[in-house]
């Protein structure tokens, strides 16, 4: 089962990964130690692969640093659910193949709650069996996730998902 990590609104990339801990300042291999190192110090050591972040509006605002979503992917975050995402963060996540769902579940779910995520028929299932539907992404976004992100898609097909031909 996946654990829910609950966050507020306007979680900026300086909170997700402070600039001082950028791979450029430290090392690529250390990146997985740093997500939320100051905002939520227990996160990196206790997060488990498959866990889910549920947050308020405008998740990932601020700096364009891709190592913020990359660090979340490295520690195994399976999806992020928020009412809205900052646009650069949205693109970065798509490039990395990290699924984002636009929904406001901050008042429905609790921190530490256990759920099961279904990406193909987007939904969360709670321990009591209750199902919370998630918005279905556009078909090209779903294909991009399946192939591991936009760069993986391009590497395989030598075209972008929206392009009919190269």
């Amino acid at each position: 089962m996946a654990r829910i990590w609950l966050f507020g609104a306007n979680i900026d990339t300086d909170q997700i990964l402070p600039g001082r801990y950028a791979p450029y300042m430290t090392s690529e291999s250390a990146l997985r130690q740093y997500p939320f190192i100051e905002a939520r110090p227990e996160f990196a050591s206790t997060v488990a692969p498959g866990d889910i972040i549920v947050a308020g509006a405008n998740f990932g605002c601020g700096s364009s640093r891709e190592y913020a979503p990359r660090a979340l992917k490295l520690v195994g975050i399976a999806a992020i659910i928020a009412p809205s995402f900052a646009r650069i963060f949205y693109r970065n996540a798509l490039n990395l193949g990290l699924p984002l769902f636009e929904a406001d579940l901050t008042s429905v779910l609790q921190d530490g709650q256990k759920v099961t995520l279904d990406i193909s028929e987007p939904s969360l299932t709670l321990l009591d069996g209750k199902k919370i539907p998630l918005p279905s992404p556009p078909e090209w976004v779903r294909r991009t996730w399946e192939e591991g992100g936009l760069l993986a898609y391009y590497r395989r097909h030598r075209r972008l998902p929206l392009e009919e031909r190269p």
Partner: peptide, 14 residues
Amino acid sequence: TGVGTRDMALTLAT
């Protein structure tokens, strides 16, 4: 407009 590093890599490639 701002983009992340993989976005930039994709544009530099294509």
